[in-house]
Simulated assay, not measured.
Amino acid sequence: MDNKYKIKLGISIGDTNGIGPEVIVKTLSDNRILNYCTPVIYGTSALFNKVRKALSADHFNYQQVDSVQALVPRKVNLINCWDHELEIAPGTPTAESGKASLDSLLAASRDLKAGLLDGLVTAPINKDNIQAEDFKFPGHTEFLTSYFDAPESLMLLVSGDLRVATVTGHMPLQEVPGKITEQLLIRKLTILLESLRTDFGILKPRVAVMGLNPHAGEQGLLGKEEVEIIRPAIMQMKERGHLVFGPYPADGFFGMQQYRQVDAVLAMYHDQGLIPFKTLAFESGVNYTAGLPIVRTSPDHGTAYDIATKHIANETSFREALFLACDIIRKRHMEAKPIV
């Protein structure tokens, strides 16, 4: 990819009654963004005019276009995804706001799948009101994995040199132990190592693997998963020449800041990884979906209905998501050798 090429970056607006439209407007009010990409918002001009007025965002301007083929370079572009008047109820999830978030996501995903966009940044959705015939998934990650026909993906939280991935995603905690197998761990580690090398430019990545049980099982006293599943998977990856270490007790690992000694951490389940990550990097964190044929990022926060009417949302995470997407898109166009 030529450095002068402006990346075409799709933006889905998330739940219209949450803070998604607000952080989008705040981020794109800085015209320096246009030096890195041509943003394409999938939404409605009526909504963004209201948000711009409410925020007094005089520096936020956009060009309304009918399709990606009609994009105006060096401008924020907006494609209307629906013609009807959208009822806005800030701070309250509604069936209408859920449908709007899905319409935006589907339109952006279609253009991305058609090769008309280079990547996608998704604003937060409500996992309940977005459910529909076209969306029967627990979140963006699972939807995009299916939509882009990827055999597997990996949720990877990123903030600078801090990277935390999870083996299992959005599922009840009681189901986690039954899902973790040696084969699954090897697949997730393979995706993580390949992403670190190809997407983040780390030639020989180092990965720390967390245990599932307290104190990493205490040699089987507090659980057998570390001895029977996690450690054998780590040994297999080491035999293939990869720098994979563990299993570590998660509390001591993060408490002693051992994450600073590796390039990424693989947690066994959602909260084991996301609680320390968000404690360390809540405002700057980015959710990246590794393992997909496309590039997708999002802020690491939710819809934040409780502040949706206050216009105080911090846009840092969304801005970092946009920059990370641009960075990965450019890195992916560099020569890369797959991990085997």
Rank of each mutant, 00 (worst) to 15 (best):
Leu266Arg: 02
Asp103Pro: 00
Val51Asn: 01
Val164Asn: 01
Gly223Ile: 07
Ile312Cys: 11
Lys278Gln: 08
Asn31Cys: 07
Ser284Glu: 15
Asp306Asn: 13
Val167Pro: 00
Phe277Lys: 04
Asp300Gln: 05
Pro177Trp: 09
Leu193Lys: 02
Leu185Val: 12
Ala321Gly: 14
Glu320Gly: 00
Pro172His: 06
Cys37Tyr: 01
Asp83Asn: 14
Asp300Cys: 04
Ala208Tyr: 04
Arg206Gly: 04
Leu212Glu: 11
Met334Glu: 15
Ala89Gln: 14
Lys331Val: 06
Ile294Leu: 10
Tyr62Arg: 02
Arg163Pro: 09
Leu324Asp: 07
Asn61Trp: 00
Pro232Gly: 10
Ala165Asp: 04
Pro177Ser: 09
Asp118Tyr: 10
Leu71Gly: 03
Asp128Leu: 12
Asn77Pro: 07
Val340Trp: 07
Asp161Arg: 13
Asp66Cys: 06
Tyr305Ile: 12
Ser29Tyr: 05
Phe323Leu: 15
Asn61Cys: 12
Val209Gln: 01
Glu85Cys: 08
Thr92Leu: 14
His242Ala: 07
Thr122Cys: 15
Thr289Pro: 03
Gly91Gln: 07
Met171Arg: 06
Val25Pro: 05
Thr16Asn: 04
Val244Asp: 03
Thr145Trp: 01
Asn61Pro: 00
Gly43Asp: 04
Arg163Ser: 10
His333Gly: 14
Glu133Arg: 13
Gln64Tyr: 00
Asn31Thr: 14
Asp83Met: 06
Arg197Phe: 08
Val286Cys: 03
Arg240Gly: 14
Pro124His: 02
Thr279Met: 14
Asp271Pro: 01
Gln258Glu: 12
Ser104Val: 11
Ala89Asn: 13
Asn213Arg: 04
Thr181Glu: 04
Asn129Glu: 11
Leu102Met: 13
Arg197Ile: 10
His140Asn: 09
Phe135Asn: 05
Ile230Cys: 06
Asp300Phe: 02
Ala57Phe: 03
Met334Gly: 09
